[in-house]
């Protein structure tokens, strides 16, 4: 992983203000002018403020937030569809922000691909031509062959000659995914790609994505306003609120240690037993202490761990990551972790 570090995407001190004189207000915003104040006094919209984020190579980074929090604005900075008012978007030693139109076009063609909430397929092209679209633009000869391969990978073989209108929403988004994957780009931008699908299809698509990612190891930026989706997909989760970054961390951290009341509220309804893993709450084993005979895996979910322990009739277990001892876990601490602290407090 020596080389890979440079392929992280680094977002630095990013500000985006919408309005005709955006540049004039950026200093005031840096000095603390809020979104509402900017809107009331100057009639400009604060899209993003002071965003610093590292998007690691080969991982899924989820950006989460409520409607209007700036998720779409942020993801569009990565492929230059939106230009920031201030700040940098660095990738492989280049700043997307300062690219010329020609450089930006090449960057989009070779390094990025995007999947859209409303699919945004070309209605006059068949599934095959849609999937081949990115390759057609680049004038790649074997476009059709590669398109057929990816249509197969998303489970749409046999539908090559259909038009988008003739497909269900779930199938249309498979086309959208295949179109993005066919581009063979390292960065995959997904703006609420599964939000328009009903829950079962949505789970299906998540599984397809995870399965493909096992093999492809792309740098995926995935936007959602759904916490369950974020926790299921995200290696890293960033939470936006009113254009500002509230917390960045993995799912465990966000659920167990929300940075503030807003995020605590956000994670309140989540089923903690299914998210938190044994390693997260394992306590270090005291020196010379006798280890319990029962062992569980470090990445097992707490609800499953609890069930196995109750079935075996033990109240303590070692948490092991392969050969390594991570720590000790016991039933009371498991129960404690599974109960939301806010709920517990209100019930005392």
């Amino acid at each position: 992983m020596t080389e890979a570090g440079t392929h992280d995407i680094e977002i630095r001190d990013l500000y985006k203000i919408f309005g005709p004189e955006a540049g004039r207000h950026v200093e005031a915003v840096k000095a603390g002018l809020t979104k509402t104040e900017l809107n009331d006094r100057h009639n400009h919209v604060l899209g993003l403020q002071d965003i610093n984020l590292t998007i690691p190579h080969g991982r899924i980074t989820v950006i989460m937030g409520l409607s209007g929090s700036g998720k779409s604005t942020l993801i569009r900075h990565i492929n230059g569809l939106i230009r920031p008012t201030a700040g940098q978007v660095l990738y492989d030693g280049l700043d997307v922000v300062t690219m010329t139109p020609a450089q930006l076009r090449d960057f989009r063609r070779q390094k990025t691909a995007m999947v859209f909430q409303k699919f945004a397929l070309l209605p006059h092209r068949t599934v095959l031509r849609n999937v081949a679209y990115g390759l057609d633009i680049r004038g790649i000869a074997e476009a059709e062959e590669r398109a057929r391969h990816w249509i197969g990978r998303v489970g749409l073989q046999g539908y090559e000659e259909y038009y988008p209108r003739q497909l269900s929403g779930g199938m249309q988004q498979r086309v959208g995914l295949a179109r993005a994957l066919a581009n063979d780009a390292e960065i995959l931008l997904m703006d609420e790609a599964f939000s328009a699908l009903d829950p079962l299809i949505r789970m299906d698509m998540q599984s397809i994505l995870l399965e493909l990612q096992q093999e492809l190891r792309k740098t995926i930026i995935f936007i959602t306003h759904d916490l369950d989706e974020a926790l299921r997909l995200g290696d890293k989760i960033a939470i936006l609120r009113d254009g500002a970054m509230e917390q960045v961390g993995d799912g465990q951290e966000i659920v167990l240690r929300p940075a503030n009341a807003y995020i605590a509220e956000f994670v309140r309804e989540v089923n903690r037993g299914r998210i938190i893993e044994a390693r997260t709450i394992a306590a270090p084993a005291a020196e010379g202490r006798e280890l319990p005979g029962f062992a569980v895996k470090a990445r097992s979910r707490l609800d499953l761990v609890a069930r196995r322990m109750t079935k075996a009739g033990v109240s303590e277990a070692q948490v092991r990551d392969g050969d390594r001892l991570v720590g000790i876990i016991d039933l009371p601490s498991i129960l404690e972790a599974m109960v939301n602290p806010a709920d517990a407090a209100s019930d005392d």
């Binding site: 076009r105 960057f107 989009r108 691909a113 633009i137 931008l189």
Partner: peptide, 9 residues
């Protein structure tokens, strides 16, 4: 759709 065209370069 136009945005998609743009995003693919």
């Amino acid at each position: 759709v136009l945005e998609a065209a743009e995003a693919f370069g």
